[in-house]
Amino acid sequence: MAETTSHLPDGAAAAPGLRSATGALIILLLAFAPQIVELLMSLAGLVIPLSGRNPLQVLSGHGSALIFALPSLVEQYAAGSKASLSSDVLLTLIYTYPLLAVALFTLLVRPRAPQDYYGGVVLMAIALFALWASSDLQGMHGFSFGAGTAPRMFGLLLLALGAAIATIGVVTDGAQLATYHWRGPLFVALAVLAFALSIRPLGLIVSGLASFLIAALGTHETRWGETLIVGICLTVGCALLFPYVLGLPMPLFPHFLVP
């Protein structure tokens, strides 16, 4: 996969880079990105019929979650019960609050290697979002893997990796921010979205291979013969791993081919 960044010109590289206040503001916006996206979708629903909450429900739900998330968590632990928290509260606790803390830290401490620091923060944001998205999935039961086990495990590993990279960006000198190329991240994101939308109707084999080929479009260096062979091998491996080794209920073939 081709690199997604390139070095800035010498004059720009010598500049101090992204100021702490600007970086903190960007991380602040990232912390509220899911809420903003849902609000925009609810506004679009006023014009185009969409399932979901209206704008007032979105604002009230997330607003109350921001205020009462910690009290709700303390109350649950004090009661000794396992009453489930709402999705808005979980989003605030798992995703928004940690990134707000990172934004405050960014405002107070200027990274010595901004490229590493902000890259690590983005990895942390992806990991936190994955942990929230998998919070309602079934976890481990003894030695039996649940649907949420793998996402949480990889999310925690990615969170630790992102935190380590961000820490390196704070304590050691390194590269300043570089220009950004959109092709690689765009097609990888499209591949993830295509897999999420097609896994149920088309099954793991078709959706997995198609998603891999879409991600391969992210670079002009792709050799399609080799890519197709690797994609088939990975798809076969996933088809054996998830349904049979881990016992996850994932369809293998398109539903219209299964009697």
Rank of each mutant, 00 (worst) to 15 (best):
residue 257 L to H: 02
residue 51 S to M: 09
residue 82 K to P: 00
residue 5 T to Q: 10
residue 102 V to H: 09
residue 88 D to G: 06
residue 220 H to K: 08
residue 198 S to V: 00
residue 142 G to V: 11
residue 134 S to V: 06
residue 64 S to I: 06
residue 184 G to I: 01
residue 220 H to A: 12
residue 23 G to R: 02
residue 173 D to K: 15
residue 204 L to V: 06
residue 201 P to K: 02
residue 185 P to S: 04
residue 212 F to S: 14
residue 108 L to C: 10
residue 79 A to S: 12
residue 32 F to Y: 14
residue 230 V to H: 09
residue 249 P to Q: 13
residue 157 L to R: 01
residue 242 F to L: 13
residue 41 M to D: 06
residue 192 V to M: 04
residue 58 V to T: 15
residue 79 A to T: 01
residue 95 Y to A: 12
residue 227 T to Q: 15
residue 249 P to G: 12
residue 220 H to Y: 06
residue 89 V to F: 00
residue 190 L to Q: 03
residue 245 V to D: 02
residue 46 L to E: 15
residue 9 P to R: 13
residue 17 G to E: 11
residue 54 N to V: 12
residue 34 P to R: 11
residue 211 S to R: 10
residue 183 R to S: 11
residue 99 L to R: 03
residue 10 D to K: 10
residue 191 A to D: 11
residue 214 I to V: 10
residue 72 S to P: 08
residue 114 P to I: 09
residue 154 F to R: 08
residue 54 N to D: 13
residue 112 R to V: 05
residue 135 S to H: 15
residue 121 V to M: 07
residue 49 P to T: 14
residue 149 T to L: 02
residue 89 V to Q: 09
residue 242 F to R: 03
residue 190 L to H: 05
residue 40 L to E: 05
residue 155 G to K: 00
residue 59 L to V: 14
residue 181 H to S: 14
residue 71 P to E: 13
residue 120 G to P: 03
residue 209 L to I: 13
residue 113 A to E: 06
residue 49 P to Y: 05
residue 67 I to T: 13
residue 93 L to Q: 01
residue 20 S to H: 09
residue 47 V to M: 07
residue 40 L to K: 01
residue 77 Y to Q: 12
residue 102 V to W: 08
residue 180 Y to I: 15
residue 123 L to F: 13
residue 73 L to K: 04
residue 110 R to V: 09
residue 5 T to Y: 04
residue 99 L to I: 07
residue 34 P to G: 13
residue 149 T to P: 07
residue 205 I to Q: 00
residue 138 Q to G: 12
residue 224 W to G: 05
residue 187 F to K: 04
residue 184 G to L: 11
residue 208 G to T: 08
residue 141 H to N: 13
residue 244 Y to L: 11
residue 122 V to P: 00
residue 49 P to D: 11
residue 44 A to T: 08
residue 39 L to R: 05
residue 31 A to G: 15
residue 191 A to P: 08
residue 235 T to G: 08
residue 229 I to G: 07
residue 96 T to F: 02
residue 110 R to L: 07
residue 97 Y to W: 06
residue 208 G to F: 04
